[in-house]
Design a protein around this nucleic acid. Structure first.
Lengths: 252, 252
DNA sequence: ATACGACTTTGAGGCCACTCAATGACGTCC
DNA sequence: GGACGTCATTGAGTGGCCTCAAAGTCGTAT
């Protein structure tokens, strides 16, 4: 009934023909070098909703790029509940945080039907011995992840419920936009529960904030379909730094 | 009046003669290769308490290793307050998160008199072209940082005040121990205010928890001097995963 | 030694988000 | 198409931490 924004794609598309290549790992490589990367990439069958890509504690063997769909990573709290650590959208790379322990420190699960490109890490390392740009790109990826996590820490330690959700929606919007989707209107791949879990809020709080935002004309939400009605005010609530805000407003 | 655990060290010590080499960057190199790393390292005068190593927005030129003392990194919230993102102890490396933006995303400030080894990044990259182990080590460093930040996100989104402070103390203790200092008794280099800022708590809450911990015999604290009296219960409060706890208990 | 500023501690009161509980909507599988 | 389970919404009440305020302590500089 709800729309299906992610059109089913053929499951084996070479990097050079992939619409995401300019956002993904290949961006570090020239056209002729891309084929070498292409050769080591494994493209499995699509993951169904709920299927795992890897489990916390599994030996670290590969990093993964999302080609379509969406993945969440999570870890178990000491009470055995799940704590979501990240959401990954198409073209985003996951698995890098396992590098220094030889096991994945989180589990990765598909939130909807998802296609994945798997890049065996030992082969990626060998390849990057010959392509300095490739390894610089991987380091930049990790550096970026560190910065994003620190933004998240800021959100968790300083922002209230309204600000957290505004930040989350604006962040999603700008990621959709980079991928060529609408940033005004999109479909959330996560439940309210997952959103709250990720943002450090109870489900009920998420729901109340959504309702309030809708009453105030900031958004229009039906189930998982979201429309951003007042990006300026939402950004202002999100309350990043002025420079960041302008960048995001212009993109919504 | 309080003790000075960090004995003043000569300001120019070669990596091969540095007591921290087994924890720091050189651990990735063989003895003869260390000298090549040594040659590119700049060792400036000691930073006095309050002096900055770099400011948010400064061009990214170097990564830094703490040789003695302690550094905090922080960023400004949109309300102009400071949000501390990390504390760095001797042998720890900071500055890597600036890699993908070409500017440092945080400011770095000395919390006490601090000696620093500066490693110009372009030269480090050149060097790592010849030493695969060195660049693997840098990637592991970043990977570790990502895992630590995610632990921190967990702390901020799920733990209460008692658990946050227990976790913080246990974490400090195990870092001190790795460096050959006592993990039962040490000196905090940060104020209650800085601790609260980092942990997402008000100063008053930090103070109250310290008082309560002391009443319950978990710790003994006079000013910045801390003694851990009941590491088992403190770890249990910190509530990491069982495996981690055991590791930490045995080290306190 | 003394005085000042910065940091810490303690108390009182209030608020935001959580918990618990119940109803309502959705999606899915026979 | 109906019944079920899952997810989302709404309400009432509570509690943990924050805020504000004041007193106490420490460190330092004169």
């Amino acid at each position: 009934m709800t729309s299906k924004p992610n059109v089913r794609q053929p499951s084996h598309v070479a990097c050079r023909d992939c619409s995401l290549s300019s956002l993904c790992l290949p961006l570090a490589l020239s056209l002729q070098d891309i084929d070498q990367l292409d050769r080591i990439i494994k493209r499995g069958r699509p993951l169904k909703k709920g299927e795992h890509l890897f489990l916390e504690g599994d030996p670290f063997t590969s990093v993964f790029a999302v080609r379509s769909g969406a993945i969440k990573t999570y870890t178990a709290t000491n009470e055995g509940e799940e704590q979501i650590t990240s959401f990954y959208l198409p073209s985003e790379i996951l698995g890098l945080s396992g590098m220094d322990t030889d096991v994945y420190p989180v589990s990765a699960q598909a939130m909807e039907t998802t296609m994945i490109c798997e890049i065996p890490f030992d082969q990626l390392e060998t390849l990057s011995d010959h392509f300095p740009e490739l390894r610089r790109h991987m380091m930049r990826l990790m550096s970026k992840k560190i910065r994003e996590d620190q933004q998240m820490m800021m959100l968790l330690s300083k922002k209230n419920a309204d600000e957290r959700i505004a930040t989350f929606l604006i962040n999603l919007a700008s990621r959709f936009r980079r991928r060529g989707f609408s940033s005004q209107s999109f479909r959330l791949s996560m439940s309210r529960n997952e959103m709250g879990n990720y943002l450090g809020l109870a489900v009920e709080t998420v729901s109340r904030v959504f309702t309030r935002f809708q009453k105030n004309g900031l958004i229009y939400a039906v189930g998982k379909e979201i429309e951003i009605r007042d990006p300026v005010q939402l950004c202002s609530l999100a309350g990043g730094k002025a420079v960041d805000i302008e960048q995001i407003i212009s993109s919504v």
